[in-house]
């Protein structure tokens, strides 16, 4: 029935000093499809792999705008993400209303981390089953944060979450020193290369399954003007095509990368939500 004796209640420590329910929640994040985030001195970008449950279904939304200066990419339970992102939007509106100040990104992430932490300590609750990558821009420049259901939040130069995100992390760790001074196009290309690492053998990135979220001055590949300047925006479908074109074929892999619209998503693949078994 249970995997072990100490996981029926999230507030009880195991003899090894672990909270099993919290660790299961971290597993739920790993079930979600991957998201990658990177930061330069001028920009912060998010890239995410969208999934659909089948040929007939639409692709599940992976990115949400919180405010003009903040956006998130999610991995895990979308319903929990909507609760937390609504809360973040309220915080952002409240800061605008009370102080006429865009909410500082660190405080926004801190506030949802505090919410998540309470769930790991109070009886009768469950941890959130979702992790975020949060990008934002405030007085101190662009930022990238990771939020996880354990109540931790850290700032990063680059980070990835979700299914097979370790492969993306390996790529990012190899290249992160170039990111600080990289132009936006290079930053996104690095992000796409990292995201590509999370794909299964027969899959590739295309206009349907790739989302790009960014903050900072407009790219030459963007057709729509962003107002106000540098605000958070999500690029999807044909808008990501020019960025996919900038990708370089994998040196180890002989097959050509990313001719647009070529892939068909596997029907009945592992869904975002299932936690059974």
């Amino acid at each position: 029935m249970f995997r072990n004796t100490y996981d029926s209640d999230n507030t009880v420590f195991s003899p090894q000093g672990r909270l099993h329910q919290v660790e299961y929640a971290l597993e739920a994040v790993k079930q979600g499809s991957a998201a990658v985030g990177l930061r330069s001195k001028t920009h912060a970008v998010l890239l995410a792999l969208k999934r659909s449950t089948g040929e007939l279904a639409s692709y599940q939304q992976k990115m949400f705008r919180i405010d003009d200066h903040v956006g998130i990419a999610i991995a895990g339970l979308t319903s929990d993400a909507r609760v937390l992102s609504n809360f973040m939007r309220q915080q952002a509106m409240s800061s605008k209303m009370l102080f006429n100040r865009p909410v500082p990104v660190n405080r926004l992430v801190g506030s949802i981390a505090d919410k998540a932490q309470v769930n790991t300590q109070e009886y009768g609750r469950r941890p959130y089953g979702v992790g975020f990558l949060v990008i934002g821009h405030d007085q101190s420049g662009p930022h990238l944060y990771e939020f996880s259901p354990s109540g931790n939040s850290y700032e990063y130069f680059a980070m990835s979450i979700g299914a097979r995100s370790q492969s993306a992390k390996t790529y990012l760790e190899k290249h992160y020193e170039e990111f600080a001074d990289a132009p936006l196009e290079d930053l996104i290309r690095h992000g796409l290369h990292a995201l590509r690492e999370t794909l299964q053998q027969d899959k590739e990135l295309n206009v349907n399954n790739t989302s790009i979220g960014l903050i900072g001055p407009t790219s030459e590949h963007e057709t729509k003007a962003t107002l106000p300047q540098g605000a958070f925006r999500i690029l999807e479908n044909e808008a990501v095509e020019p960025f996919l074109q900038t990708m370089v074929a994998k040196s180890t892999d002989s097959s050509a990368p990313a001719p647009a619209g070529a892939s068909s998503s596997g029907a009945g693949g592992s869904s975002d939500v299932q936690m059974s078994g």
């Binding site: 009370l98 102080f99 006429n100 100040r101 500082p104 405080r107 405030d138």
Partner: peptide, 19 residues
Amino acid sequence: TSQDGHDLGPAEIHEYLSQ
């Protein structure tokens, strides 16, 4: 207490007071 360098300036104080 937040100690994160995001201090309230006069514009923020004024907006808060007006509210």
